[in-house]
């Protein structure tokens, strides 16, 4: 089963929940946690394990062959992303801007732009007790998160079978990277806060998962703070709230040290148990 944990905005506790839930479930299940926030992977701060595998990840970009190029300028015209520029007698390629669509390469009349692989980031695979942890990080300056997210999911799907519980920590927001990260999930958990900011961003996230036609539920973080409007919204829209994590200063403190929370806060553990029960029901 594939579970994606997402939220409309950053800072709602998505990573905290992913890491704690994965570690908690690993007591009874085989779990793999994958951090798909490839721009800012943070889950790894909470999960300890030994480095099992490391892979450089590549994307395909065109490479200019000066010898055969006639400087006809077609490639520059065919690139919708300004990733190719003709500067007098030379052609410049900007790998970060390239979307790997192959148009320039395959439409070049003299085959002077063959596609070659270029490094875009790195995947790391750690393993611990009954839990594996995968994270990928984009190299600084790389702008396309989507291909790396896709390859990271591919790695997980190739290396773990269906008996493994796969938890995906999605990037924040509602844009292409989130869609890439959640489109193959069986179930999505949306993390929010009981505040106007939380509600506003939850609504955006709900619109997104509805667009993807996914089954989903909500976990409220920092419960006790703010107001009831998130509750009301979920009730009106028949969205199940499967857990309410209490707002405790102690949680913020433990989080700040990069430690797992459920091991130290019983109230937190109780809520993880509720999520775990819900997931198990979903699995059947």
């Amino acid at each position: 089963m594939r579970i994606a944990i997402a939220s409309g905005k950053g800072g709602t506790g998505k990573t905290t929940l992913s890491a704690n839930l994965a570690a908690f479930l690993s007591k009874t299940e085989t779990v793999v946690l994958t951090d798909l926030d490839v721009e800012e992977p943070n889950s790894g701060l909470f999960i300890k394990g030994k480095l099992e595998n490391e892979e450089t990840k590549y994307k395909m970009i065109p490479e200019w062959k000066e010898e055969t190029c006639t400087l006809c300028g077609e490639c520059q015209k065919n690139c919708n992303f300004h990733a190719i520029i003709q500067l007098g007698p030379q052609i410049l390629v900007f790998p970060e801007l390239c979307h790997s669509c192959y148009a320039c390469s395959e439409l070049c009349p003299t085959d002077s732009l063959p596609m070659v692989s270029q490094r875009m980031g790195k995947l790391k695979h750690y393993s611990g007790d009954n839990i594996d942890f995968i994270e990928s990080q984009l190299d600084i300056g790389q702008e396309q998160a989507v291909p790396l997210i896709g390859q990271t999911i591919q790695y997980v799907e190739n290396n773990f079978d269906d008996n493994t519980l796969k938890i995906y920590d999605s990037p924040p927001g509602t844009s292409c990277p989130v869609i890439e990260a959640t489109k193959d999930a069986d179930f999505i958990i949306l993390v929010t806060e009981p505040t106007p900011f939380g509600l506003h961003d939850l609504k955006l996230a709900v619109e997104t998962v509805k667009e993807l036609r996914k089954s989903f539920a909500v976990v409220i973080n920092r419960w006790g703070l703010g107001d009831e409007k998130v509750m009301d919204y979920c009730k009106e829209n028949d969205i199940p709230i499967i857990a309410k994590i209490p707002n405790l200063r102690q949680i913020a403190e433990i989080y700040s040290r990069g430690e797992l929370i459920f091991e130290q806060v019983p109230e937190f553990k109780d809520e993880l148990l509720k999520i775990s029960d819900y997931i198990k029901k979903e699995m059947d």
Partner: peptide, 15 residues
């Protein structure tokens, strides 16, 4: 009107 790649484009113009 360009979402990305404004820098290289303007540079090309200067050239």
């Amino acid at each position: 009107n360009e979402a990305h790649g404004a820098g290289p484009k303007t540079s090309q113009k200067l050239f």
